[in-house]
Design a protein around this nucleic acid. Structure first.
Lengths: 158, 158
DNA sequence: CCACATAATTGACATTCTCAATGGAATCGG
DNA sequence: CCGATTCCATTGAGAATGTCAATTATGTGG
């Protein structure tokens, strides 16, 4: 696959001869491509646990003491509230999270992981971390930290 | 909208109290969120030109002398070949690109921008760049260059 | 109490992702 | 040259995701 048939140019790929392509240093494009790779790897790693990146993210936030409402989950994960309904429905159906009425606001549901959900997440997390390490093998620890810091500023503009 | 009612905790958002959340320093998650923001801004900026980030990317690669085949476009943009068919169909219908038979491989179509396509891209590009600058206002030029370099390594692993 | 904003939910619809199958063309091994 | 295999573009189907409007119950401010 590294050397396609596509003869005329002697197997030189677009990526290699993208000299004047306007997408070259386009952060948006690089973001999209890196995200696509990351998403694919993540979903593959999570398949064994019956999770996808989406449901894993919800579960991750339900673990711990943040006790997010569905609206907060939607905002944090950049999802439409209606998508959160479906994700929580599914996780709840599987017994991994439960909805608790927010005592301070009876409109809101707080999403909390069950004991089983915490256990599932702990396992899944290992798989995700391993996949991520492999995907980021090119980056040193320093690079990784720098990237994380820069992305944080992009992902959570003040 | 910036200050939700969400009462009990005094307007403290999940993002602010995500102390122990396992997604905190998760590059994959940050990548997804930053990409979602970037995608939304890009599509908004391109709406005036009847383009979306997807079609804009294809057009960008069709401009210039790379002369990519559809398969190469798919690989570069991380799309399924069947998606490229639809994207090129649409751009071709609007007269922005054309398919040319690759003289070296009669199976392959090379996608090239028309004069009109080049003009449309030139305008659209300005809008995209402006939106991107605004979105990345938090980053200095150095930060931007560093981020670009790091993402390049993630997006195009060797 | 009233007018208005908000949280979760439902439903509809468009876009995107992923996969399998097909026809025409190239490549490789004999 | 021939057959087997691989590859490109295309079609079609089904799942996942994104976006939007409307509804119900609840909170907030006047």
């Amino acid at each position: 696959m590294a050397s396609p048939a596509g003869g005329a140019r002697g197997g030189v790929s677009v990526a290699q001869r993208r000299g004047g392509s306007p997408l070259d240093d386009d952060v948006s494009f690089l973001l999209a491509r890196a995200n696509a790779l990351s998403l694919a790897a993540g979903n593959a790693a999570l398949a064994d646990y019956g999770l996808r990146v989406r449901s894993y993210s919800v579960l991750a936030l339900a673990v711990g003491d943040a006790r997010p409402s569905q609206r907060e989950l939607a905002e944090f994960l950049r999802l439409d509230p209606s998508q959160v309904v479906a994700l929580v429905d599914e996780l709840q159906r599987r017994g991994l999270v439960r909805r608790e009425a927010d005592p301070a606001d009876r409109r809101a549901n707080v999403v909390v992981a069950t004991t089983e959900g915490e256990a599932c997440f702990a396992e899944a997390r290992l798989a995700v971390r391993a996949a991520e390490r492999e995907l980021h093998a090119e980056l040193s620890d320093d690079d990784h930290a720098r990237l994380s810091e820069l992305l944080q500023r992009l992902a959570f503009p003040s």
